[in-house]
C-alpha cells in the first residue's frame, strides 16, 4: 500500500466520522459540545488545568453567545455591522451603573442591559439600513467610534477611566461569584440558551426570510417581505443577545471602561468569530470561538511584556489560513469536503 492510498483512506475515515456526527440528532450534537465543557471548572478546582485555561474557556463560551448574536444580523440577514461593540458596551455599562451606583441587582440589570442594547441597535439600524453593503458597514463603524468618544468624555459613567466594582460584595444577588470559576457556568448557560435560540431561528420562517433578504433584497420585497421590518427585527434580536453578553462580561471582570468594551478590536472580534466558523450556520460561532479565543488568550499571555504585538501577528496568520482554505468558514468547508453532496440531507 502506497502512502497516497493510506492518505485517501485517512480522508475517507474522516468522511465517515463527519457524516456520522452530522447525522446525529441536534440534541446530541449540542450535548457533545456543552456536555464535556461542564467539567472544565472541575478540572481547574482539582488542579488538572490552569486558571488560564478556565479563564480562556469562560471567555470562549461568552464569545460563542456574542458570535451567535452578531450572526443573526451579519450572517443570516447579511448586514455586516462593524458597530456591535456599542451594544456590548450598553449592556455592560447598564449592568455596572445600576449595580455600582444604585445597588440594583444584575438579575435585573443584565436583561435590562439587553433591552437597552436592543434599543440602541434599533436606533443604529433605523438610521443605517437605508445604506447597503460597505456603506452600511462604514456607517456602523462610524457610530461605534462616535459612541466610544462620547463614553470617554461622559463623567457620570467614569469617562475614560470607567467603573470599578469597589465595595461590591460577592454573592448571588450581586452576581459577583466567589470563587470566580462559578462565572464559567453563567457563560455556559448563556452560550447554550443562545445556541438553542439560533437553532430555532435557523429552522424557522424568520431564518429563511433573513437568508432571502441577504441573497436578494428586491426579490424578497417582490415576495411580499417588508425588508426593513425584518432587518430591524434581526438587529433588535442580535443587539439584545450581545447586550446580555456585555452584562455577563462586566460581572465577570468587575470593571468596565471604554477601552475594554468599545475599542476597535472589540467591534472586529465579535464578527471574526462567526466569519471564521461560518456565516449563517448554527455551529459556525461555536467553532469560531474555540479557535479565536484560545489563540488570543494564549498568544497574548505568551508574548506579554516581551514581544508585544506578536500575538496579533500569529492571529493574523491563523486568519489568513482560514481565509485561504475556508473562505466560507470552517463549518461550510468541512461540509463541502466531508459531507455527502447527494442524499445526505440533514435539514429536513
Amino acid at each position: 500500500m502506497s502512502v497516497a492510498d493510506r492518505y485517501v483512506g485517512g480522508v475517507d475515515r474522516f468522511r465517515v466520522y463527519y457524516q456520522h456526527l452530522a447525522s446525529l440528532p441536534p440534541a446530541v450534537q449540542f450535548g457533545l459540545v456543552f456536555g464535556p465543557a461542564m467539567l472544565f471548572p472541575v478540572l481547574y478546582t482539582t488542579g488538572l488545568t490552569s486558571w488560564q485555561f478556565l479563564n480562556t474557556m469562560t471567555l470562549t463560551f461568552l464569545f460563542i453567545g456574542l458570535g451567535h448574536g452578531w450572526n443573526v444580523i451579519g450572517g443570516y440577514a447579511g448586514q455586516i455591522s462593524l458597530g456591535h461593540a456599542v451594544m456590548f458596551a450598553v449592556g455592560a455599562y447598564t449592568t455596572a451603573v445600576l449595580l455600582v451606583y444604585y445597588g440594583i441587582t444584575p438579575w435585573i440589570g443584565i436583561p435590562l442591559g439587553g433591552v437597552l442594547a436592543s434599543a440602541a441597535g434599533l436606533i443604529l439600524g433605523g438610521v443605517t439600513f437605508r445604506l447597503r453593503y460597505h456603506y452600511f458597514a462604514l456607517a456602523t463603524l462610524a457610530a461605534a467610534l462616535a459612541v466610544e468618544s462620547l463614553f470617554n468624555r461622559w463623567d457620570f459613567i467614569g469617562a475614560s477611566v470607567g467603573l470599578q466594582y469597589t465595595g461590591v460584595e460577592s454573592g448571588l444577588s450581586s452576581f459577583v461569584f466567589e470563587p470566580r470559576w462559578i462565572h464559567f457556568y453563567a457563560m455556559w448557560v448563556f452560550a447554550l440558551l443562545v445556541t438553542l435560540l439560533i437553532y430555532r431561528l435557523h429552522h424557522s420562517r424568520l431564518g429563511i426570510y433573513l437568508k432571502a433578504i441577504n441573497m436578494d433584497q428586491e426579490l424578497a420585497a417582490n415576495a411580499g417581505l417588508n425588508v426593513f421590518r425584518y432587518k430591524m427585527y434581526a438587529m433588535g434580536l442580535s443587539s439584545f443577545i450581545v447586550g446580555v453578553g456585555g452584562g455577563l462580561y462586566v460581572q465577570y471582570v468587575n470593571f468596565v471602561s471604554p477601552v475594554e468594551t468599545l475599542d476597535l478590536v472589540r467591534n472586529v472580534e465579535i464578527l471574526l468569530i462567526p466569519i471564521i466558523g461560518g456565516l449563517g450556520t448554527v455551529f459556525g460561532p461555536i467553532v469560531g470561538a474555540f479557535i479565536y479565543m484560545p489563540t488570543r488568550e494564549y498568544t497574548r499571555g505568551m508574548f506579554a511584556g516581551t514581544l508585544v504585538g506578536v500575538d496579533w501577528v500569529i492571529f493574523g496568520l491563523v486568519l489568513l489560513l482560514v481565509v485561504i482554505y475556508a473562505p466560507h468558514g470552517l463549518v461550510n468547508r468541512l461540509r463541502d469536503t466531508f459531507g455527502n453532496p447527494k442524499g445526505g440531507e440533514t435539514d429536513e
Binding site: 420562517r205 424568520l206 432571502a212 441573497m215 415576495a223
Partner: peptide
Amino acid sequence: FPDLTVRENMLINQEHRNERLVETLL
C-alpha cells in the same frame, strides 16, 4: 434565492399580511 431549496423559495412567497414577527421565529 440560489442557496435556498426550491421548497423554501416557494415558502418565502406565503401570505405575509397578518404575519406576527414573534411567530416567524417560533
